Simulated assay, not measured.
Amino acid sequence: MTLTVGLAGITGKFGTLLATSLLRNPSISLRGYARDPSKLSATLSSSPNLHLTRGEAFDASTLAPFVTGCDVVICSYLGDDKLMTDGQKLLIDACEAAGVPRYIASDWTLDYTKLAPGEIASKDPMKVVKAYLETKEKVKGVHIFIGGFMDTLLSPFFQMWDPATQTFRYWGEGDEVWEATSYKNAAEFTAAVAADEKAVGIQKFIGDRATIKQIAASIGRATGTEPKLERLGSLEELKTLMIETRDKNPANIYAYLPYFYKYYMTNGQTLFGPETDNAKYPDVKAESWEDFVRRSRQ
């Protein structure tokens, strides 16, 4: 039996990984939706199981035929609040009108249901979309929680790991647990969820669940080095810094967003483990921090 999967935002970084994982399943017929499908690699675009549609996120006339006949639609949009709320609402409305049974929202994050509005501003659209899906009669929402993305947490944007000096910087005591999953692993779990017609509601997956100091040790084992640990201050000091930075220039979200993520990940508020849905899909191997760093260095 062939399963028809729609993937909106297929040319983005995560969308491309999703498409790669989905096309490994010979039972899946994939439809990709993008503003410029030519950005997709030749390897993917030449797949006989992929059909590409050119269209804008806010063009209902192209969204409707794209979703019609799909068994599940995945949204991998990444952008401003208008795209993440109004853009997804248009896509959800198209799914509802076409009778698409499931919609996998653009989440892939920590447990935002435990956050009050404004605590992490970039999660507010996800809360809005989840509530919007709950008003629909035909299309059921699917929300995939993966903790933080390992790729992002070790990137320069997050200001935690400095590969030049082999320094791991953190707030708190260092024994706080973080939940994290790599982009690649999250895509693999999502592909498994898409193929599972019974998977609805919140789905929880973790590549690794480890303390801050354990993460640093994993990096050390993977790189053959001994990272230096640098404590930047207490969680209360981090909270003060993040609020001061935001209030100084609210429009510059990228200046304070990493602080908010670090605070709400470190204080345990957004944790959803240790119970996960990993075991539902035994063919997908959880990628640990050490696995991820080793693969990234290849």
Rank of each mutant, 00 (worst) to 15 (best):
D107S: 05
Y183P: 09
S296T: 10
L3C: 13
L83F: 05
I120A: 03
R246E: 15
L241A: 14
G207C: 08
K204E: 13
T113A: 13
D208T: 15
V200L: 10
L83I: 06
R294C: 12
F157D: 12
L83Y: 06
E176D: 00
N278F: 06
Y77L: 03
G32C: 04
Y254W: 12
A57T: 01
V293D: 00
M1C: 06
Y77Q: 03
K239Q: 02
G99I: 01
L238K: 02
G6Q: 00
D196E: 06
V139G: 05
V293G: 08
I74T: 05
H143L: 03
S288V: 03
I146R: 11
G201H: 12
T223K: 13
N278I: 01
I104C: 11
L23K: 00
A57V: 02
A192V: 08
G147E: 04
L229Q: 10
T270L: 01
G201A: 04
M126S: 00
P125M: 05
A210F: 09
G201R: 13
K198F: 01
G172Y: 08
L63R: 03
V293L: 11
T211S: 15
T165M: 13
Y33F: 15
S182R: 09
L50K: 04
V73G: 10
Y132K: 07
S122L: 12
W289P: 10
G9N: 07
N267I: 08
L44V: 07
A286S: 15
G273W: 14
Y112W: 02
A19Q: 06
L50F: 05
E179G: 07
E226F: 07
L90F: 04
I215Y: 02
L7A: 08
R169C: 09
V73D: 07
E236N: 07
V5E: 00
L241K: 11
D36G: 04
I219T: 01
L153S: 02
I202S: 14
T240P: 00
S122A: 09
L7W: 03
D36E: 13
D162N: 10
P37K: 06
A116C: 09
Y112T: 11
D86T: 07
I253C: 00
K127D: 08
A121Q: 03
T85V: 09
G141C: 15
G174E: 05
D81Y: 12
F58G: 02
K123L: 11
G233R: 12
A94H: 12
E119G: 09
A131Q: 14
I144M: 05
V73N: 05
A279D: 15
T20M: 01
A19K: 01
I219H: 08
W161F: 14
P250C: 05
K127M: 06
S76T: 09
Q269A: 13
L63D: 10
R209G: 12
E237V: 03
K184D: 14
A192E: 09
D162F: 11
F189L: 07
T245I: 02
P101R: 14
R24Y: 06
E197T: 15
P26K: 08
I212Y: 11
M126V: 06
W289Q: 10
K204T: 08
I206L: 14
Y183W: 15
V200F: 03
L7F: 09
T53A: 01
